[in-house]
Simulated scan of single mutants.
Amino acid sequence: MRPLVILRPEPGAGRTADKAAQLGLIVRRWPLFEAKALSWEAPPPGRFDALLLTSAQAARLAGPHLAIYRALPAYAVGNATAAAMESAGFAAVTAGETDGTAIAARIAADGHRTVLHLTGVHSAPIDAGPLALHRIAVYEMMETDAEGLEAAIRSETVLLIHSPRAGERLAALLPFESRSRFHIVAISPAALAACGGGWASTRAAERPDDDRMLALAHRLCE
């Protein structure tokens, strides 16, 4: 059986590892980034029609300021982000299943126009359409010491990529000529494209969902 290496940050890496272990997979965790909370000033909630989070890390690291926005209609990209918002006290979070542009279109269709977007320093671009997005970074993803990744993975391996930035860093860490023994499963086409070429095989989940990624990885690991 090919081992599965999870490259996403904690605590998500641990959740993914638990699910993978339940599938009987051989699992290793090697986070390429770790999240660091940032200080930020919270604008009055009355200035906004809705709240958008595009990462579960934003819900986890926004701190006590996040609570003042609980009365706003809440939107999230992905079920994991929605679950993190619900754990932070938000009710009836609307989750989009693709990307920020798709959930922005849903927010606009619901009649909202001025939206507070709490996110990371590095986040995927969003086509906001008619929305006025007020973006505030509440966390930053810092690179971990992953220079030994290639040496640590000596056999044919399946790698999980949970973001375009992770794909970019993986491509920087593993030279083209050494990629032929690695299989890539990415959370989105954008994350997959960031990995570049030369891999043994590549797959992207049809929706940004951990369970879909693991279903693809399971077949490759067997």
Rank of each mutant, 00 (worst) to 15 (best):
D209S: 04
P44H: 10
A166D: 07
W199Y: 01
D209I: 11
R212N: 05
V27P: 15
R207T: 04
L131P: 05
G198S: 01
P44D: 14
R135F: 03
L220P: 11
L170P: 02
L25R: 06
L23Q: 09
N79P: 09
G63M: 01
L4I: 09
L23H: 13
E86A: 09
M142F: 09
L159Q: 12
E140R: 13
A84Y: 08
G120S: 00
V5Q: 02
D209R: 15
I103D: 01
E206P: 06
H218A: 11
P73R: 02
L170A: 13
E34T: 13
A152P: 01
L220C: 04
C221F: 09
D127F: 01
S123V: 11
M213L: 00
H122D: 12
T81Y: 00
E206R: 02
L7R: 07
A132Y: 08
L38E: 10
L116G: 03
A217N: 12
S188V: 00
A152D: 14
A146Y: 08
R165W: 12
G46A: 02
T114R: 14
H162R: 08
D49K: 12
V93N: 05
A67G: 08
L66V: 01
R47Q: 11
G63L: 07
T94P: 04
T54N: 10
Q22Y: 15
F176D: 14
H218F: 08
L173V: 06
I187E: 12
M213Q: 07
D209P: 02
L118P: 07
A108R: 09
R165A: 13
R212Y: 04
A217K: 00
L116T: 06
R106G: 09
S39C: 14
H162D: 13
A166W: 00
A76M: 07
T114K: 15
L174R: 13
L192W: 13
L174E: 06
